[in-house]
């Protein structure tokens, strides 16, 4: 038992932050990838989500197909397609696994986020937008100053949920070796037969790391949501 704990203790720096002297890896990279993908994905989602409500048929069609395709494919397949086809076949050189991972996560996540954006935009009361228009603001300005801030507040809990799910999904990046937590776990265990006894403790530890972050964020989000809901109620009572 002592031996097992020592094994985990001696490898925890790699598991948490990646191998020394290299780019950040491990748990830190998993978290960074999830945050980056959710933030970049938001801009794609905004385009696609708004495009779904466009008056132009072809635009709506393209946006709908975008969502269908990236939601219908398993993430692991998307990652491999971008890594192998995007790199060697299209660009003609090996794409960095990290770049492929980020692109795949952004495309995958943005399809889910687009649905959230659409629901969020639909929840904005029409009167708010119309009042802004009557007061003389341009459609674009009304979108950014009235619609978006309102919708963002509605969308935030769903985005946090999406970020947690994306954080867990970073584990599939092990298939291209993107140096995130699962890749490092595999590297630490290696093919050394004497490490077989450490499999169970190490995977329990890694499971605990994922659980810790995901559960903590979901608890914080839940508390924050309750708080903001009550403050929103107060806000609506004082305004109207």
């Amino acid at each position: 038992m002592i031996e097992q704990i020592e094994f985990i203790y001696s490898h925890s720096p790699q598991l948490l932050f990646g191998f020394p002297g290299q780019r950040p890896g491990g748990l830190l990279l998993s978290v960074m990838l999830a945050i980056l993908a959710i933030v970049i994905g938001f801009f794609f989602a905004l385009l696609v989500g708004a495009g779904q409500q466009s008056r132009s048929g072809p635009v709506r069609w393209v946006c709908q197909r975008y969502i269908d395709i990236f939601r219908g494919l398993p993430l692991i397949l998307l990652v491999i397609i971008i890594y192998q086809l995007g790199g060697v076949r299209i660009l003609g050189f090996d794409i960095n696994p990290l770049a492929a991972a980020l692109i795949a996560l952004v495309l995958y996540s943005s399809a889910y986020q687009a649905e959230i954006v659409r629901a969020g935009l639909l929840s904005v009361p029409r009167q708010h937008v119309e009042s802004a228009r009557v007061l003389g603001s341009s459609p674009l300005r009304a979108f950014f100053t009235v619609e978006l801030p309102y919708a963002l507040r509605v969308m935030t809990p769903a985005f946090v949920g999406q970020a947690i799910s994306l954080f867990k999904d970073t584990s599939v990046l092990v298939i291209i070796g993107a140096a995130e937590l699962m890749t490092i776990t595999r590297a630490v265990l290696g093919s050394d037969i004497t490490n077989l006894q450490h499999w169970i403790t190490l995977y329990l530890f890694v499971g605990l790391l994922y659980f810790g972050i995901a559960y903590a964020v979901s608890l914080i989000a839940r508390r924050w949501e309750e708080k903001s809901r009550s403050s929103e109620l107060v806000h609506s009572l004082t305004t109207y």
Binding site: V172, M182, I200, F211
Partner: peptide, 12 residues
């Protein structure tokens, strides 16, 4: 089981 990635559960 919700907060641990499916892949970790599978390998475990």
């Amino acid at each position: 089981h919700r907060n641990i990635p499916a892949l970790v559960l599978i390998i475990f």
